[in-house]
Design a protein around this nucleic acid. Structure first.
Lengths: 141, 141
DNA sequence: GTAATTGCAAATACTTTGCCACGTA
DNA sequence: TACGTGGCAAAGTATTTGCAATTAC
């Protein structure tokens, strides 16, 4: 287990969560995959399926989302997606509507200025955004 | 019933759909509301609840989405949202995570250039994007 | 020891489909 | 008439919760 996992778990501890096997495996799995994952995917992943129940993963994700350690994403599927929320890192996603592959967009996000403007003009608090591109990838086309 | 409704229904007819009461009411409702709505909202709206079953609304929305006349949106809720897809018009949304209000963002969308870039670099077909801002509105704060 | 966490199973929420009746073209 | 469309009810998928047992601190 590398340093980053330890760091994130340290954040969890600060947030008042207990250090459990399930928590460690969940964080590791999300970090290793590097992409948003659904509850079903997570709960059936090798590291977690042997380790704990789907309800546990669900509740863990809920707690982590409540503390801003993971973020829940829509992504147009029926199932919700979850991704680690690394401070200072923001990702937009490119999603193939045919095969469902999700990859982070590498280019810098062009939305922050508009976000600032909206924050000023509307008075919304805790503003953040979610940006996804949908299309058919070359393999599927 | 105004002209725009007639226009949209004309598009539906061209797409091979029949002109039914349910179709007219659905289009009118979506157009009047001016915002994305869930299946449940639509099916229980005054114009539609008296008119037809939820399954009918569901199937209509599916057909319309298949022909690009409505668009299905994620918007972070458990239920899917549907919005009329007016040619040449694109909307980003500002959503209050506390009361759930959804309003279109008035400012021009700053994402089109990045979208073009992604189209060129990745070879994705039929590329489009979805952009949402989430936060707590002044009333809820 | 105490409160947070977990597993299992049951309850919800929302979506989707089957089947036959009906209405539009 | 023929095929798209509609209603009703049932099935499917994903999420969420209750409660007693367990575990981290």
């Amino acid at each position: 287990m590398n340093q980053t996992v330890q760091d994130i778990i340290a954040n969890c501890r600060e947030a008042g969560l207990r250090r459990t096997k399930a928590l460690e495996e969940l964080i590791s799995t999300l970090l290793e995959s590097g992409r948003p994952m659904t509850l079903a995917e997570l709960a059936s992943s090798p590291r977690l399926s042997s380790q704990c129940d789907k309800a546990t993963v669900f509740r863990l994700l809920q707690r982590l989302a409540g503390h801003g350690i993971v973020r829940r994403l829509g992504l147009h599927e029926r199932a919700a997606y979850f991704a680690l929320q690394i401070p200072g890192k923001h990702s937009d996603y490119l999603i193939c509507t045919s095969c469902g592959t999700i990859e982070p967009v590498k280019a810098p996000c062009p939305v922050h200025e508009l976000e600032d403007e909206i924050r000023k003009k509307t008075g919304f608090q805790n503003l953040y955004h979610e940006l996804e591109f949908f299309g058919v990838c070359p393999k599927c086309a």
